[in-house]
């Protein structure tokens, strides 16, 4: 037996159960006791209905008597007016309900439009680079590789290109540190300017150019190849991000404010001497978020 049953007030409201179909009634499914029970129920309900009808008749008679006692012309008129007023109010309520429905629909439409507008605003800011998104994060990783290349790999390579025991560095302003920084600057140019225009640098080409400029290139092959591969990878990955970025070669370092560059020779003080490696700028990015240009400071001069 099931624990659950139906609520008492959900019992059928008909005065008596619907008669079973002829097929059901003659199927033997309903016993004599069941039919007697049905008749008993019916009799009880008839008694109840007669009682209810009697009560209704009595109330109707009472109302009629009351109406006869108080009946006059003005009350009839008031009643008519009242009915008219109720009718008008009812029409008004219906019209108002329609209007509210209409307004609610329009409100929902307006809300959807507003959402789309605001969402489009953010999408636009992402697409133009104004809002820093996943695309900036990808550039951020490339920036790290670029900085590593300039600050460690090329710096180490420059030490091989400008060995400490070569005396000619003493003859140029800034001495050996400036000569090594200059070598890095030239390497950055060789590695990136042509590659950005679709012609990746080759180790042989760069080595030959360096030798032509008087650098000591013997024994630099492994480091140089690694640097070339690294730079070409950076250029390739920069181009693969939907949001464009560029290396800002075209800059006059003497016009840069102190917070617009990073000193390549961090230990020194002075004024910007020359550009070692350009800033890495992502489209739409706030300038303070660019990877700042590496600048060689001319030592000994106050900023």
């Amino acid at each position: 037996m099931y624990e659950y049953g139906w609520n008492d007030h959900e019992a059928p409201k008909e005065p008596h159960p619907a008669a079973p179909s002829m097929r059901a009634a003659t199927s033997g499914q309903y016993s004599q006791e069941w039919w007697l029970g049905q008749l008993h129920d019916l009799q009880q309900r008839l008694v109840a209905v007669e009682s209810w009808q009697h009560a209704v008749d009595a109330r109707a008679e009472q109302q009629a008597a009351k109406a006869r006692r108080s009946s006059n012309g003005s009350s009839q008129t008031d009643l008519t007016r009242l009915r008219e007023t109720v009718g008008r109010v009812s029409d008004g309520v219906t019209a108002m309900a329609h209007r509210v429905d209409h307004l609610e629909t329009r409100l929902r439409q307006a809300e959807v439009l507003l959402d789309r507008l605001r969402s489009a605003g953010v999408r636009d800011a992402i697409a133009t680079g104004e809002a820093p998104s996943d695309m900036h994060r990808r550039h951020s990783q490339i920036k790290e590789r670029y900085q590593r290349l300039v600050d460690q790999d090329l710096r180490n390579l420059a030490r091989e290109l400008c060995p400490a025991d070569a005396r000619q560095w003493d003859q140029i302003p800034g001495g050996m540190p400036a000569a090594r920084a200059r070598a890095v600057s030239e390497l950055v140019h060789m590695l990136f300017t042509a590659a950005q225009q679709g012609t990746p640098a080759t180790a042989e080409g760069v080595q030959s150019a360096l030798a032509h400029r008087g650098y000591v290139t013997e024994g630099t092959d492994p480091r140089l190849r690694k640097a070339v591969d690294g730079a070409n990878g950076i250029v390739r990955d920069m181009a693969a991000v939907e949001l464009p970025a560029s290396l800002l070669f075209d800059v006059d370092v003497t016009t840069l404010a102190e917070d617009e560059y990073q000193a390549y020779n961090r230990q020194d003080t002075g004024v910007p001497g020359f550009l070692v490696a350009p800033a890495y700028a992502v489209q739409g990015e706030a300038p303070e978020n660019h990877l700042k240009a590496f600048v060689f400071l001319a030592p000994g001069e106050a900023p």
Binding site: Y2, Y4, G5, W6, A11, P12, E14, P17, W34
Partner: peptide, 8 residues
């Protein structure tokens, strides 16, 4: 849920 015989 159980249903009583008379319920229609």
């Amino acid at each position: 849920v159980a249903v009583f015989p008379k319920w229609t």
